[in-house]
Design a protein around this nucleic acid. Sequence first.
DNA 1: TTGAAAGCGCTAACAT
DNA 2: ATGTTAGCGCTTTCAA
Lengths: 342, 342
Amino acid sequence: MTSKIGKRATIRDVAKAAGVSIKTVSRVFNDEPNVRSEIREKVRHVGQKLNYHPNVAARNLARRRSHLIGLFFENPSPAYVTELQMGALKRLRGTGYRLLIFPVENRADIRGAMVSTVYASGLDGVIVTPPMCDDPVILDELLSSHLPFVRVAGDNSIDKTASVIIDDEAAAFDLAEYVLRLGHRRIAIVIGDETHRSAGLRLMGFRRALRTAGIEPEPAMEIQGAFTFQSGLEAGRRLLHHANRPTAILASNDDMAAGVLQAAHELRIPVPQKLSVVGFDDTALAKMVWPQLTTIRQPVFEMAERATDILLRQIETGTAPETAKLSYDLVIRFSAGEAPTG
Amino acid sequence: MTSKIGKRATIRDVAKAAGVSIKTVSRVFNDEPNVRSEIREKVRHVGQKLNYHPNVAARNLARRRSHLIGLFFENPSPAYVTELQMGALKRLRGTGYRLLIFPVENRADIRGAMVSTVYASGLDGVIVTPPMCDDPVILDELLSSHLPFVRVAGDNSIDKTASVIIDDEAAAFDLAEYVLRLGHRRIAIVIGDETHRSAGLRLMGFRRALRTAGIEPEPAMEIQGAFTFQSGLEAGRRLLHHANRPTAILASNDDMAAGVLQAAHELRIPVPQKLSVVGFDDTALAKMVWPQLTTIRQPVFEMAERATDILLRQIETGTAPETAKLSYDLVIRFSAGEAPTG
DNA sequence: TTGAAAGCGCTAACAT
DNA sequence: ATGTTAGCGCTTTCAA
């Protein structure tokens, strides 16, 4: 109310009004030392009165830092994406860094344009998720640009980059083993989008579990999906119309498991009495469908939080890229039961 | 590869290398007229060779614009939030503006801090969603700050602000009327979070429909929810354990409807044979539950897109705040059927 | 503990 | 069609 209409107060206005130099004002607003508390208070007070807010662009220019982090994702599941965002944001809280979101519709669009986008937005660093973070072209581009970046849930065989993962293969193995232990012998899998490295790893874990139990994986029991509900629904229909249909279906994520569940409902096949269905991720959706999904809890929120932590360290202190592997859990709910007899 | 390591090329480097003034380089990189195509090409080429990318902070400082839009929301439903984001982003594509997300956990935290947050992030404008956009304190703060802002899905009785809405009252009326026409007489409602204006409007529409049909609304048939799945589940349980339980339940959003559905499943009440359940919003979740929800389609994506459009116009040309009312649709799926006889 | 001066890298206004 | 000169509002030396 004190400042002129249409014109924000600058550091100079505050300096003049407080009778100090602009450097002192700068010190105060950046919590730097070497200012008498008396003056500090005075400056703060004048700043308040003038409704002074440091100009972000000017500060960014002088500091050579935008305090902007970009989150790049493709959108297979709203619940998953939300977890990612909230996890990243949690770590960012109180740091002065902000989160910019970049949903990518078509990977081809971003290939070769990733770094330009980062420059055009002035990002200090980026968080990249599958499938982009496993795309060799994109990875190369990122690597040679020397931009700080971190990968979430990507391929764990690439270790020269910062990344946070879980052991997808082992998790899928455990999940399949659980289903096997319930007595199922005829088990199908709905595979995730093949450009996601995790989809392949989960398939491998599934197969290994079957082989370990003395069952040879059967092509007809491996249906390609795309990590979407719709693809799960379609895969479920195909699988359940099969002459010799499976007694258990393992979906590579919860959205597809929900789709399979819907296919079962359509065909009036009771779950888990006649059919067991399990998911992967334990997103919010897992509890919203009926019956609630037995699934693998992938700590997406924590992974994003941790990834952001690693990224921030890279940006601020230029440390070498770190890697972290978080643990998963088997969450037993009500969508899987003992194999039907006969 | 041509530029020195660790130092980005500046406009001056390009100008020197291309043998022109920095202003010409600026013209080329901003697609301004008055540059011979010959020179234009030369500058572009040199820019590429030097791996030149205009410095965003410098540009922002000179232009007095950050090209940053903030989206403030509270997170009742992941699917809803994702729609909002995607809608806003669609309009932003190609404009050079970026989207910053601000999930608000606790409204009290943001009350009185909204404008500071905007300044601290250097936002050019903000998109605000319920319930924040209906909070008088927050609205006042925004209004007196003269920051460009637009409200999505807020209270339609406030018309001096830019906003995009649907007619929640009429939509709820139509939805209830549809259920009444199916022969239901004992109809309950799960009310949304009361701090959302839309929750109240939907309740009013529901009541009006009942009265129009000659039914007096009954307190026991109006249960308070919070727009979350869990609150819908709990409300459903209460309603269905009721001695004289309803034959139809109207939930104020899809997440709560999914919760009600789950309660029905728990109690082995067949939907829609013995119980009809309808939702509101038509988010992605509506199709993922069983049976798929009959619901009101609120065009969240389009609303966000439109709101962003209005906001951009305010920012760029300083036009007066506009208002838009979009239409809703009744989407008939499989969760509501004729009232059970007897 | 404080301040003056010199940038940060760009665009705007105004020549030419 | 092109260039020159001031800023934009901060932070960073470096001096006092």
